[in-house]
Simulated assay, not measured.
Amino acid sequence: MATPEFILELREKVGHDLLWLTGLTGVILNKHDEILLVRRVDNGRWSLIGGILEPGEQPAVGLLREIQEETAVEAAIDRLVSIESLPPASYPNGDQVQFLDLCFRCRPLRGEPRVNDDESLDVRWWPLSDMPDLTDRERESIANALSPDPLPIYVRSED
């Protein structure tokens, strides 16, 4: 899995200290009530398509780039689903990171899904009624994407 060059440059300066990054997640749904998932190289699990926003890149453009890079599918954004600060995490090498994640609902335009980079073992459409084991956060993202409410989900401050 290739680490973006800008992160490698930042790591030269900050070492393993916590980096605050913008993450992108796509819930790609087709007209057959199927969802596009990738099986990750790093842990072998099926997951939603996602990635990291590059400096200066617009979030929707960045997610569409990630979808195409990982699956060879060209997609379109339907709407922003959620904005959420994820808990800090550590990688095996000691790097610490925290993501502000922007999740979008998307639809495919063209292209047959296939492994299109070194980050995935498999790529395929899954029926919503028979998905593989996903994390609670991913299942929540899917439920939010399927909601008829067009407003993005976010944590409101306590008044």
Score class of each variant (00 low, 15 high):
residue 44 G to R: 13
residue 23 G to H: 11
residue 25 T to D: 07
residue 90 S to T: 12
residue 57 E to N: 14
residue 82 S to E: 09
residue 73 V to Y: 00
residue 138 E to G: 07
residue 38 V to A: 14
residue 139 R to S: 00
residue 7 I to T: 01
residue 52 I to G: 05
residue 121 L to A: 02
residue 57 E to Y: 13
residue 5 E to Y: 07
residue 9 E to D: 08
residue 145 A to F: 02
residue 92 P to E: 00
residue 154 Y to Q: 06
residue 73 V to P: 01
residue 157 S to H: 14
residue 35 I to G: 15
residue 121 L to M: 00
residue 84 E to W: 12
residue 57 E to F: 11
residue 3 T to P: 00
residue 141 S to E: 07
residue 114 R to C: 06
residue 120 S to Q: 10
residue 97 V to P: 03
residue 113 P to Y: 02
residue 158 E to N: 10
residue 21 L to T: 06
residue 153 I to T: 06
residue 107 R to H: 03
residue 7 I to M: 02
residue 25 T to V: 10
residue 37 L to R: 01
residue 106 C to I: 04
residue 144 N to L: 09
residue 94 G to I: 00
residue 156 R to H: 04
residue 100 L to I: 09
residue 143 A to P: 03
residue 151 L to Q: 11
residue 29 L to R: 02
residue 49 I to S: 01
residue 139 R to Y: 00
residue 140 E to T: 15
residue 153 I to W: 07
residue 121 L to G: 02
residue 115 V to A: 06
residue 12 E to K: 15
residue 56 G to S: 13
residue 141 S to W: 04
residue 29 L to Y: 08
residue 7 I to E: 02
residue 34 E to Q: 09
residue 110 R to W: 10
residue 62 G to S: 13
residue 121 L to P: 01
residue 73 V to C: 02
residue 78 D to R: 15
residue 146 L to S: 03
residue 39 R to D: 06
residue 21 L to N: 12
residue 34 E to H: 06
residue 40 R to E: 14
residue 28 I to E: 14
residue 130 D to Y: 12
residue 22 T to L: 05
residue 35 I to D: 13
residue 56 G to R: 15
residue 129 S to G: 13
residue 106 C to V: 02
residue 52 I to N: 07
residue 27 V to A: 08
residue 10 L to C: 05
residue 100 L to C: 09
residue 27 V to D: 01
residue 4 P to Q: 00
residue 43 N to Y: 01
residue 148 P to K: 10
residue 132 P to T: 05
residue 86 L to T: 06
residue 78 D to V: 12
residue 34 E to S: 05
residue 97 V to H: 07
residue 52 I to W: 04
residue 80 L to M: 08
residue 124 R to C: 08
residue 14 V to C: 15
residue 77 I to K: 11
residue 81 V to R: 00
residue 80 L to A: 07
residue 32 H to T: 10
residue 152 P to R: 14
residue 136 D to F: 06
residue 156 R to L: 00
residue 67 I to C: 04
residue 55 P to F: 15
residue 66 E to K: 11
residue 48 L to G: 06
residue 99 F to G: 04
residue 43 N to K: 06
residue 42 D to R: 14
residue 123 V to Y: 03
residue 109 L to I: 03
residue 46 W to T: 13
residue 31 K to N: 03
residue 147 S to E: 09
residue 159 D to A: 10
residue 40 R to D: 11
residue 81 V to P: 07
residue 3 T to E: 00
residue 122 D to F: 01
residue 11 R to Y: 14
residue 155 V to M: 11
residue 49 I to D: 03
residue 117 D to N: 09
residue 37 L to N: 01
residue 105 R to E: 05
residue 136 D to P: 00
residue 94 G to W: 05
residue 25 T to W: 02
residue 153 I to K: 05
residue 130 D to F: 11
residue 159 D to K: 09
residue 82 S to N: 10
residue 141 S to R: 12
